[in-house]
């Protein structure tokens, strides 16, 4: 009742929704970069909502099951998955396909081009210890997953208890995972530490995603965002999606594994409706920002939830 990692790829980790309620002890929230994809994957498999999956950045991942199971790949339109049976038959699948796999099958996720990360969801998830309310790995804090680290070839990970065939089988339109490169943010909490030209540059020019991007932060390259005074503040809370600006004026977007506190001024924060889209943006992509009010953000979130419901439909039997 386990899976063996044959190829780990450059950065693959076990991830759930994250750890909540422990930031005051310094415990990062972590969790999947694309929690929306995780939620959809778990619905497609009939899993509990917070069942973990394997987050695969860039691809190059391969895994073998020693028992029959059910899987789905989510978080991208273009990523593919192959299943090779012990008899040597190879079948190819797309994201959102729900796939029955057998004992001995080898599942491979080759490198993919459209998204930063995809999630391989498995019926029942993986059985790893819960620490501070989560099972996901945050390697910079040496916490979660397997000994707090990324997956390695040779790892054997026990499977969690699957709930059996879901009562309702769902279909998901994979277009919901389309890459979005215009992200909505709310200015603040420290936007007034910046010169007016910084706000204009942020909202009117484009930024290129640096190769120095990780699960901790997405570094951007573009017009510098000048401060009125010093770039440093007395450290305060961080949040996924916050744009921090150090003295060099190049913004860094906090990603899932950000530290709980940060000492750079924050010019804005990506809104909830767009935050999971960050998990699909790759180094080299060019992105831009628009500013919304709190009321517009609330409406955007409602529309986003409605779009998710519309993309997920219950399959009729037969």
């Amino acid at each position: 009742m386990s899976v063996t990692i044959l190829q780990a790829g450059p950065y693959s980790t076990i991830q759930d929704r994250g750890r909540f309620g422990y930031q005051h002890l310094g415990v990062p929230t972590g969790g999947a970069l694309d929690r929306e994809a995780l939620a959809i994957g778990n619905i497609l498999l009939g899993n509990e909502p917070n069942t973990n999956g394997i987050e695969i950045c860039f691809g190059g991942f391969s895994i073998q099951f020693d028992v029959a199971s059910r899987i789905t790949l989510v978080g991208s339109i273009g990523a593919k998955l192959t299943v090779e049976t012990p008899a040597g038959e190879i079948s190819e699948y797309q994201t959102c396909d729900v796939i029955e796999v057998g004992a001995g099958d080898i599942i491979t996720v080759p490198p993919f081009g459209d998204s930063l990360s995809v999630l391989l969801c498995i019926a029942g998830g993986l059985d790893v210890p819960v620490i501070y309310g989560g099972t996901g790995a945050t390697p910079n804090a040496k916490i979660g997953g397997i000994e707090g680290r990324i997956l390695q070839a040779g790892d054997v990970v026990p499977l969690g208890k699957a709930g059996g065939t879901p009562a309702l089988s769902h279909h998901c339109q994979r277009e919901i995972f389309a890459k979005r490169t215009t992200l909505r943010l709310m200015l603040g909490p420290q936007d007034f530490w910046f010169k007016q030209e910084a706000i204009e540059a942020l909202l009117e020019t484009t930024y290129k995603v640096s190769p120095q991007t990780s699960r901790m932060g997405m570094r951007l390259q573009g017009a510098a965002l000048p401060h009125k005074g010093p770039a440093d503040i007395i450290s305060d809370a961080m949040m996924r999606g916050v744009l921090q600006v150090p003295a060099d004026g190049q913004p860094i977007i906090a990603m899932a594994d950000h530290g709980t506190m940060g000492g750079y001024t924050k010019i804005g924060c990506i809104i909830a409706a767009d935050i999971d889209a960050l998990g699909r943006i790759r180094p080299g992509d060019v992105i831009s920002f628009t500013s919304v009010t709190a009321e517009e953000a609330a409406l955007a979130l409602q529309q986003h939830e409605a779009a998710r419901r519309a993309a997920l439909t219950v399959k009729s039997d037969g």
Binding site: M186, P189, M239, G241, V242, I270, I271, I275
Partner: peptide
């Protein structure tokens, strides 16, 4: 009060 996005 200073908003940090719509989630904080």
């Amino acid at each position: 009060w200073l908003p940090m996005g719509d989630q904080a």
